[in-house]
């Protein structure tokens, strides 16, 4: 128990920018690169992660005093995997197009390091209300990042955002942006911009 407690508001906002899981902590890059080929996909993955992270953090924070530390990791994984399977089946049953678009990356949320990372570092050591706020902050930060990245890549690579045509007819789409190399380029650019903004604000990277 640390003797300097940060405010609840700080716990929430840190996940949005200062400790943004993708741009600052560089976690969960695999799904980020894979599903940001369109804005809808990025947003959907983000929503799935919000659901999984919030539910897992809540449950794990509630049972944190019951679980012996030697079986901590398997127990957390069981909790996370259960929620991810529920999310995956829900998508397949009610939103089949999105389920197809996200493909194998929804089950891969189980091993997304953001989720297990927050449980180990935070939810297992903090009371429920703090764990929920932290989970929300981190997952919303993740979602915003993925959505913006998806919008950027879709705009340049397909001329649209959320499937609404934005670019004029004459625009020759930059196909590479919706392919894997474009993912790396776009993500690298975004991290660079985040670092530049932070250096102006005086926050160390």
């Amino acid at each position: 128990m640390s003797s300097f407690k940060t405010s609840l508001a700080h716990e929430f906002t840190k996940g949005l920018w200062k400790e943004n899981p993708v741009l600052r902590m560089l976690l969960g890059l695999c799904p980020t690169l894979a599903v940001t080929n369109s804005a809808v996909n990025g947003l959907s993955m983000g929503l799935a992660v919000i659901f999984t992270l919030t539910c897992s953090s809540t449950l794990i924070s509630l049972i944190r005093n019951i679980v012996p530390k030697q079986v901590r990791i398997p127990t957390f994984i069981i909790v996370i995997a259960t929620f991810v399977t529920v999310a995956d089946r829900t998508l397949a049953a009610f939103f089949p197009t999105i389920s197809k678009a996200l493909g194998p990356y929804v089950p891969l949320i189980v091993v997304n390091c953001i989720i297990l990372g927050r449980q180990e570092a935070f939810a297992s050591k903090n009371p429920v209300h703090r764990a929920i706020i932290d989970a929300l902050g981190m997952s919303i930060g993740f979602t915003l990042t993925l959505t913006i990245l998806g919008m950027f890549r879709e705009l340049l690579g397909a001329g649209s955002i959320f499937n609404l045509p934005i670019m004029p007819e004459s625009f020759d789409t930059w196909l590479v942006m919706i392919l894997p190399p474009g993912a790396f380029l776009a993500l690298g650019l975004m991290i660079g911009i985040a670092n530049w903004i932070n250096s102006k604000l005086g926050i160390k990277s």
């Binding site: 019951i66 679980v67 012996p68 079986v71 398997p74 127990t75 069981i78 909790v79 995997a81 259960t82």
Partner: peptide, 10 residues
């Protein structure tokens, strides 16, 4: 007990 119950519930 904890791990078995967690697995069963899941």
């Amino acid at each position: 007990i904890v791990l078995t119950i967690a697995a069963i519930l899941s």
